[in-house]
Design a protein around this nucleic acid. Structure first.
Lengths: 206, 206
DNA sequence: CGTTCCCTTGATCTTCGTCAAGCGGTGTGG
DNA sequence: CCACACCGCTTGACGAAGATCAAGGGAACG
């Protein structure tokens, strides 16, 4: 899905990862968010006229396409789902603010550590982690596009974390032996994910 | 208003400027958005339990405090206002994505130029510009906190723009003689502000 | 009249980017 | 079945954007 498109359906990620990104005319690209299973995208089709960014797959995907009309009907009849959608939008905005913070103030190691913590926690809330490990399909190049760092520097930073025993990352699987330590190193505070409202979020699915 | 607070009212900026910001434990600060007259803040009080950032004034303010209850009643009765609130939230999110792009990919000159264009256009849509000029109460220090640059580098970058005749900035007033030129220099594309829906936004006030 | 805030400018240092080369695994076509 | 191409990862050398340190100036305000 490309910038400028007029989307007609809402997509629910059932399996696989995706990303939102924006390109500059000269080719620079910034990934502005990731999608993991359970995420919803393109709620804005209700209000905004056209896409101001692009969306792409990072792995093979299984997606549920929900037509706009079906969604509108649900919203009319089910206020708790509407509330869940607000929650979704507000948490996405809070996450975007945190990314702004990362890119503006954190150094390379902090940015990458922070991103790893965020993704791990998001996967854990949807039950996709296995102890201290989780699937991790992002290439170093994509990590660079998300953190505003060069591929080379991402690599060196990951090496440093590996050498310190703080992460194991190979064969598309990430292990964080001591999550608390990584959170501390990258000054990660999970409050922006608003997981305390996870319950309310899931309630809407009843 | 501080991170961790539980807000009880929604604030509408009638006059004056404000900013959202986040602080790191070691004192680094990132401004993540600005408020200008006409902006609303803290819609999240409907859904999220506590603030994940702080909000502060940049000038003396005139603000309307709308109690949560009054807001809920309005939302029940006036679907067009509810739609306007969605618009507000989605545009705020789109703006946050654009800031992510700026901090991740744009260099110092582009970041600052881009921010000046954004603020000028936002002020123009609410009728606060005067030809090619607008009020501009931000200090160079605040500009640095918003763009992730040091105060010193903000200063040098502004000097460059001045020397090129692209901006005049003094006595808290900004003049952009050739907006189109500045937009081009900073690769500014206004699509993320979704001004095409301005009409719908205002309709809600009828 | 002095203090404070904001702006300005110079010199030096650091982080990260760029350029370049090479390695290993995997998939594909001859 | 092998060869080659491609993709992702790794490492070294060098360069540049921007940070930091330092000092001083001007205007507004008490």
């Amino acid at each position: 899905m490309r910038e400028g498109d007029q989307p007609t359906v809402i997509n629910l990620f059932l399996d696989g990862w995706g990303r939102r990104y924006k390109d500059l005319p000269d080719g620079r690209r910034q990934v502005v968010s990731f999608f993991v299973p359970g995420d919803l995208c393109d709620l804005n089709i209700f209000i905004l006229r056209q896409m101001d960014h692009s969306i792409g797959a990072l792995t093979p995907l299984t997606i549920a396409e929900i037509p706009r009309s079906a969604f509108e009907e649900i919203i009319d009849r089910h206020p708790r789902i509407t509330q869940a959608l607000w929650w979704e939008a507000l948490v996405a905005a809070a996450t975007q603010r945190e990314w702004t913070m990362s890119l503006g103030q954190r150094n390379a190691a902090e940015r990458i550590g922070h991103l790893l913590c965020e993704l791990f926690l998001r996967l854990r809330t949807v039950g996709l982690t296995n102890g201290t490990s989780c699937p991790f399909p992002l290439t170093q190049s994509v990590l660079g596009e998300a953190t505003g760092l060069s591929l080379v520097h991402v690599n060196r930073t990951l090496q440093d974390y590996r050498a310190a025993g703080m992460i194991v990352l190979k064969q598309r699987e990430l292990t964080i032996p001591d999550l608390r330590a990584l959170m501390e190193a990258s000054m990660f505070d999970a409050n922006y994910l608003h997981l305390d409202h996870e319950g309310r979020h899931f309630d809407a699915n009843i």
